[in-house]
Amino acid sequence: MAFTEDNVKTMDSMIARYPRPRSAIMPLLHYVQSIDGFVTNEGIELVAKKLDLSTAEVTAVSTFYTQYKNKPVGEYHVGVCTNTLCAVMGGDAIFSALKEHLDLENDGVTPDGKVSLEHLECNAACDYAPVVMANWEFYDNQTVQSAIDLVDGARAGNPPAPTRGPDVLPTWKQNSAVLAGLNDGHANEGVQAGAPSLLGLEISKVQG
């Protein structure tokens, strides 16, 4: 997709956040994904031009970080944590169930472009294991069935809400814009904390 003049202005505002332009490369690449869905050649060339870098230098950065994709992902990108703790607690079972259910391999995308699947490393929610992420929103304490419901809902255009996140699951592109630092107005939605986060506090109140 072509980048509009407004897109370029937004990029300029991201560059202006930093004392040195090159620092903006990460938000700019998130932003490219919010428009193109992944890091396109056009995006690389534009970022290189904006930051006065060679295209190779931009490629070097975009291929280092796993959230930057070099090919399209689904409208709903589903990640299953299969790091040790989640894997043991059920993450492995969920991931293989989803692969079978969607008929996908790791990094695959459903033919309708709705859902892509990836196994993840630890996502900092171990007290909610097993954890599944969709467009980098938390789906805590998952089971095989709840994960299947999530991807089925996503394919039908009606995914369930995250357990700790906005009221409605945004698309991959919408959330990429959030990661680029743009405010989508959903910060106040969702719980402030899940039950495990409050456990110690609860106990301390009992302790008195």
């Binding site: 004392p19 998130h30 970080y65 993840l120 996502n123 980098w136 929103e137 945004p170 959030v178 910060a187």
Partner: peptide, 19 residues
């Protein structure tokens, strides 16, 4: 000038911080 470098795989945390 200060920076918060937050991991990218936690969109809702990013939203709350940004807000």
């Amino acid at each position: 000038k200060a920076f918060i470098y937050v991991r990218g795989e936690v969109t809702h945390v990013v939203r709350r911080l940004n807000q």
